[in-house]
Design a protein around this nucleic acid. Structure first.
Lengths: 255, 255
DNA sequence: TAGTGGTCTAGACCACCTC
DNA sequence: AGGTGGTCTAGACCACTAC
């Protein structure tokens, strides 16, 4: 009979109407029962089609409210400039970056001593299970959960920089603090990956279905050692990363 | 009664068994009817739970075969070195990179003249709708669809470099070809984003449910102009990107 | 042919939001 | 109270894969 299953036809039709602006970002879709009539399908079939759109990240659903077209507003993070002390006033890079973008940052924070998990140990070139300092941030922008950030420092660093393992924030920023103790980060190795969130991540970042996370792993180097590894987990719908490579003096040229 | 709905409990239980290795990568899960018995749930409820795992990218399903735990093997792309002519022998960067990784690359290719879409026009600083050359690649690694790549060149470039708009491949690589015509790329601006695939992307990349795409947008600069914009769409489960920043001479130090 | 997942239905009850 | 989506059931038929 029909080439496509009914729930896909329904999803395709609605998707077309969404991208064509019939349902603009923020608009409400018709209710399940209305769609059920319009497409001559049972409620479960309608739900299957809508679930497809939800899992594509196009719409959200909430009990009692209905389905809504998702609106996107992204925050750009320039990873080349991030943590570059010459670009930065006092305070940590996140606060600086977000404030510069005219948004209101806010974070919760905790410190623990933790045996190195395998992926961290490998990147820091230390033994699996050896002591590390984990500094963990849960970050918000304008009270929306934005990212989590876990930074692991090798245990030996605390001898030179004892405040690392103390449970408070470091007002001037850890990079700056370390630099003041003769531990200067001269290079970074960044890795970027994406995947669907784990249930834990979905809870922390208040991510709905259909939104992937962006994983940014930065390993920091001094002249002769690896001195930290930071894993940042972003909501993929709200964040983009940027890198500048080489000579970009033409960036400011006019048309 | 129960805090969690039954289909979530089912998903949680199976997820736990998967991460604990009871069902290792590549293993088959019990059939829907077996799970239906085990969890005392209707088939539809079981399917809801399994769909959750599929949408997390943990398992795949196929008709007649059953559910299988996804196995991951990722390809690392070093974007700092990518297209650096001094690192490269003849040929394009993709071929070089993939071959160096001991894999077998393969691509289909096409060229068209196309009016500039908005996002491209903005990045190339040209008028929306003005002529561009689009060179489009669909890339495979070991016959698995890997990425699509669309590169837009501003129309004026073809006067200096006419082979750009000819339909064949450029054997020595376009970057090298351009450099030979006095158009040297001296810098790049990279943007990285993630989202769920559109139906088109899902088809081209043979992506199943629960796998996001990684979007890499590279704008190339000469000394005084923007000379190209490349949008690469990766399967998120198979690819990771890397950047090197600053001095990484400590990378080769031993433990 | 037997077993698997894929689609679809009809109906029930619950939880949440708005009025 | 009435409408919305969320969960769950029981059963039907189809399509694909294996043997």
């Amino acid at each position: 009979m029909s080439e496509q299953p009914k729930y896909r036809q329904l999803a395709d039709a609605l998707r077309r109407e969404i991208v064509n602006g019939i349902y603009p970002p923020g608009a409400r879709l018709p209710s399940e029962s209305e769609l059920s009539t319009r497409f001559d399908a049972s409620r479960n079939t309608v739900r299957n089609g809508l679930k497809l759109l939800v899992s594509e990240g196009l719409v959200t659903s909430s009990q009692g409210l209905g389905y809504e077209v998702r609106s996107h507003e992204v925050f750009e993070l320039n990873a080349s400039r991030f943590e570059n002390l010459t670009f930065q006033q006092n305070g940590d890079s996140y606060t600086t970056d977000v404030t510069n973008a005219g948004r209101r940052p806010h974070q919760t924070f905790r410190v623990e001593m933790k045996p190195a998990p395998e992926d961290i140990a490998e990147r820091l070139r230390i033994e699996v299970g050896s002591t590390t300092v984990l500094r963990f941030c849960h970050r918000y922008v304008d009270d929306v959960p934005w990212s989590t950030q876990a930074t692991y420092y090798p245990g030996w660093l605390t001898e030179q920089a004892p405040r690392l393992s103390e449970p408070g924030d470091i007002a001037e920023g850890t990079t700056r603090y370390l630099a003041g103790h003769d531990i200067e980060q001269v290079g970074y190795f960044d890795e970027i990956a994406t995947r669907m969130p784990t249930p834990d991540e979905a809870r922390l970042l208040e991510i709905g279905a259909g939104v992937p996370v962006l994983l940014w792993t930065r390993t920091g180097y001094s002249k002769d050692k690896r001195i930290r590894c930071t894993i940042t987990t972003f909501r993929g719908d709200l964040n983009r990363m940027q890198y500048e490579i080489g000579d970009l003096s033409a960036r400011n040229e006019v048309l």
